[in-house]
Simulated assay, not measured.
Amino acid sequence: MAPKIAIVFYTLAEAEKKGIEAAGGTADLYQIPETLNDEILGKMYIPSTRRSTVLLTRLLHQGALWGKYAGLFVGSGGQGGGQESTAIATLSTLTHHGLIYVPLGFKTTSALQSEINEVRGGSAWGAGTFAGADGSRQPSAKEIELATEQGKAFYGAVSKVNFA
């Protein structure tokens, strides 16, 4: 039985999904409900939650995610935005849900992650993007490539598990 993959997102989700599909898997996009109104979200350049994706709610108390696999990708305002510390802090949330963390690592992306020709988000913890101080910057081609490779690597890891 092939693993069913859900991507909970903001930026880079489509690239992660593309990587999973390129590796032979399938993935669905999900979103956590926003607590801010659309006016404030618009000023932050964050898209509204009113899209064609399924919204996730109250999974912790149902134990709905226990034993499932998770990776992560992040976005921040700039290079000092704490992408690695955000990833580390997210491990607490994953642990509370009982999720099994699958890091990106360097196996398939060492050369890409070591390039210093341009500013790029992401690390061994997972893909990342810089949104700019006002949130208006979109992911670069390298950031999208890293997210796509993470999708492939994630599917490669979880597809080895016997889900039967």
Results as ranks from 00 to 15, higher is better:
M44Y: 14
G135T: 01
L41R: 02
P3E: 04
R51W: 08
A64W: 05
K4F: 12
Y10C: 09
S48E: 09
S48N: 10
S114I: 05
G132T: 01
P47R: 09
R120H: 14
S159V: 02
G98S: 00
G151F: 13
L41G: 03
E118R: 02
Q150W: 14
A13S: 07
E115Y: 07
M1I: 03
E34R: 12
D134R: 05
G71Y: 06
L55M: 12
E34Y: 12
S76K: 11
G75A: 14
K152S: 04
V54L: 06
I32R: 01
N162Y: 09
F130S: 09
A111F: 08
G67C: 09
K107T: 09
S48G: 11
A153Q: 12
K107G: 08
K107H: 11
K4G: 03
E34T: 15
L36Y: 01
E143V: 03
F9P: 02
T49A: 13
D38C: 05
P47N: 04
I100K: 13
G78Y: 06
V102Q: 06
T93M: 14
A89R: 11
P3H: 06
V8L: 14
S85H: 14
A153L: 11
F130G: 03
S110A: 12
G135P: 01
F130L: 13
G126L: 08
G135Q: 01
R120E: 14
A89D: 10
E21R: 00
E39I: 12
T86H: 04
K142H: 15
T35K: 00
A147D: 10
S140C: 06
K17I: 05
K17G: 02
L112H: 03
V8R: 10
L112M: 04
V8E: 06
N117A: 11
Y30F: 15
P47C: 07
A70Y: 10
A89V: 10
G24W: 05
K68M: 12
P139W: 02
D38G: 02
Q113L: 12
I32K: 03
L104M: 10
M1V: 01
I100F: 15
K43Y: 11
A111P: 00
A127V: 12
W125R: 09
Q79T: 15
I116K: 10
P103V: 10
L112Q: 05
A27T: 00
E14I: 13
W125D: 07
A111Y: 06
I7F: 10
N162R: 04
L99E: 07
G98M: 07
D38R: 05
E149C: 15
A89K: 11
G156H: 06
G19H: 00
G121C: 15
D134E: 08
G77I: 09
F9A: 03
G24T: 05
